[in-house]
Design a protein around this nucleic acid. Structure first.
Length: 580
RNA sequence: CGGGGCGUAGCGCAGUGGUAGCGCGCAUCGUUCGGGACGAUGAGGUCGCAGGUUCAAAUCCUGUCGCCCCGACCA
């Protein structure tokens, strides 16, 4: 990065603050980034980073770069347009939920606007005949990423175009990968911490990226979109999509089987009402829901009535990309009953049935009779229902459920996902021909891989969300666009001396020497922009032989210092150090 | 993609068929100058776009594009 420290006269700086917030802005962080002249929207989900915003982005990138390099990764740059063939090779052109942006050149060459770059890096690496001696290594880049999101929202929080740091590591085997994975966990925690963000490392779903496991780095926040669960002691932390919990277990597995009964209950729909009506515990009820996959396959899913179904878990078990609740017509066709009375009794053979672990070992339970208005009770596996070969975990975790240790309740949290790391394993190296290295035994083996993402703009918005007050932003020093804001109130001559001194000391200064702006306006702007230290040089101060130094985070913490450049510098450094 | 809302000056908004408005901002001049100052003057709009109804449309109708919110979906 450019180490030249500069000062910037505000009258010449392309930073136009505004007093009013555009009406569609929902969050403070977004409002202040716009009002402070950091960003401007082009069209939905695509933003200009103005000089101020770009400086913050660069500073965030610099921290990421340092920590990536410390972790042994090497920066490079891949093309933004990816040959579409590569995406076809891994079958990701069809992946739903990730609408690829495509462009065609004049010769008909098709390209994808990359939303992530696994294929590109594998394609690059396979062009070399690598040996196990070359492994492991990690390559990374900062580059624009394109996501055709259904809906952009929250300013920089969910956009269609953004700078992402994406890294890809190549390994000889799982063991070697795991070492890097742990190293990256530490590197990420450290980079976020340096940026002023406390992150939770949360197990999550890998979605379209592939692989077997992954972790998200989440900053707890009310405005975040990620719902996750943790235990009090922090031993367990998982995204709602994958969160596991200790389920209800049938205790009376030895109770004698009772005779099956079909009970008429007109209009009795829903577990609570049903349990009350049948006078049985809710744990004895069964929820049966029919889904249709994107291929049109109908799946019946059953779970203990006290739980809800987690569609992400279900999708992963079915290996499908999209699930929809079956329409009432389909439900009637398959079960012969209207919605609300579906059960796992006598379903047509072509319907795949997935049962949750919470059904295992139960006796004398209830489920829909597949007959409108009827529920069957005292059902038993073997006698009434064929016991499945395997039970799955398809339950949705909720706050208060016990973690798998059976002791600690799950606590629900919301947060912003600012980074993620994925185990890719052999997912890409097996799909892409020639993604192999030569091992010590002379045989070609596929790379074992991992990848590591970091959203730069989203991180910037998250910092803004965490560091602001009613007056504006309060950047931590490490990412602040400038170190010091020198506000001159009709005493530019002395202010210039201060600015020159700070520059000589390597500090970046924004210098408000504007003639036309009123005092109130200058202060209001300064607080909106949020540079960590304010130095006020005024005509009044000249009479008293002082300058005033204030900390943005605590404006009441104001020091009046004699007009001695050494003293001024010492005070500023104290605040900057404290702010880092 | 489903539900709701909105497109009038850079921003925030008013304007239900009859001359296109207000506040902020912007420009010029003057007075102010330690908390978004005041006065005067001025620039800026084919009322999102297209079509229709009408003597007359920002206003009514149809279509279309865009934006926001909720849902679905998704780093």
């Amino acid at each position: 990065m450019n180490k030249t420290k500069i000062s910037q006269k505000q009258s010449e700086f392309f930073c136009k603050t505004t007093r009013e917030t555009p009406k569609d802005v929902e969050y403070d962080s977004h409002a202040y980034l716009i009002r402070g002249g950091y960003i401007r929207e082009s069209v939905a989900g695509r933003y200009y980073f103005l000089p101020l915003g770009y400086k913050v982005q660069q500073k965030i990138m610099e921290v990421v770069r340092e920590e990536m390099n410390n972790a042994g990764a090497q920066e490079m740059l891949a093309p933004i347009l990816h040959p579409l063939e590569l995406w076809k090779e891994t079958n990701r052109t069809n992946t739903t939920g990730f609408e690829l942006m495509k462009v065609t050149d004049r010769r008909g060459g098709e390209f994808a606007l990359g939303g992530t770059a696994e294929e590109m890096f594998v394609d690059l690496v396979r062009q070399f005949k690598l040996s196990y001696k070359d492994l492991p290594f990690q390559l990374y880049q900062f580059s624009p990423k394109f996501r055709d999101e259904l809906r952009a929202r929250g300013g920089l929080l969910r956009v269609r175009e953004f700078i992402m740091k994406d890294g890809y590591s190549f390994h000889r085997n799982e063991e070697d990968f795991k070492e890097t994975y742990e190293k990256m966990k530490k590197a990420y925690t450290k980079m976020f911490s340096r940026l002023g963000l406390k992150t939770a490392i949360v197990e999550s779903d890998n979605g379209y990226i592939g692989g077997e496991y992954c972790h998200e780095f989440i900053v707890e926040s009310e405005i975040g979109e990620s719902k996750y669960f943790t235990t009090e002691n922090g031993d367990y932390s998982a995204h709602e999509d994958v969160a596991k919990f200790m389920k209800f277990k049938e205790e009376n597995t030895n109770e004698p089987e009772k005779a099956r009964e079909d009970v008429e209950g007109v209009g009795i729909i829903g577990v609570e009402e049903l349990a009350k009506f049948l006078q049985i515990p809710a744990e004895k009820t069964t929820k049966t829901i029919l889904f249709v996959t994107e291929k049109g396959e109908v799946v019946a899913v059953a779970i203990n009535g006290i739980y809800d179904i987690n569609e992400t878990k279900l999708k992963n078990i079915l290996g499908c990309a999209q699930l929809k609740l079956a329409s009432p017509e389909v439900v009637e066709k398959i079960t012969g009953a209207t919605v609300g009375y579906a059960g796992i009794l006598n379903l047509p053979k072509e319907v795949r049935v997935v049962m949750d672990e919470s059904l295992k070992g139960r006796k004398n339970f209830e489920c829909g009779a597949n007959k409108t208005n009827y529920h069957s009770i005292n059902l038993n596996f073997g006698r009434d229902i064929i016991e499945p070969e395997k039970y799955y975990d398809i339950a949705l975790a909720k706050a208060g459920y016990l973690a798998l240790d059976g002791k600690q309740p799950l606590v629900e949290k919301k947060g912003i996902e600012v980074g993620n790391i994925f185990q890719l394993g052999y997912h890409y190296s097996k799909l892409m021909k020639g993604a192999v290295y030569t091992d010590a035994d002379g045989k070609e083996k596929p790379f074992y891989m991992g990848c590591y993402g970091f959203g730069v703009g989203r991180t910037m918005a998250t910092i803004a969300e965490k560091y602001h007050d009613v007056k504006g932003l309060m950047w931590p020093s490490i990412v602040a666009p400038f170190d010091v804001h020198v506000v001159s109130l009709k005493d530019n001559d002395y202010a210039v001396k201060v600015v020159e001194m700070l520059n000589a000391e390597g500090l970046e200064v924004l210098f408000d020497e504007r003639d036309g702006a009123s005092v109130g306006e200058k202060f209001a702007d300064s607080e909106l922009i949020g540079i960590p230290v304010q130095v006020i040089v005024s005509e009044r101060g000249a009479k008293e032989n002082i300058v005033e130094i204030r900390e943005r985070k605590d404006l009441k913490n104001s020091q009046k210092i004699n007009r001695d450049l050494g003293l001024i510098l010492a005070e500023i450094n104290k605040i900057l150090k404290y702010n880092d």
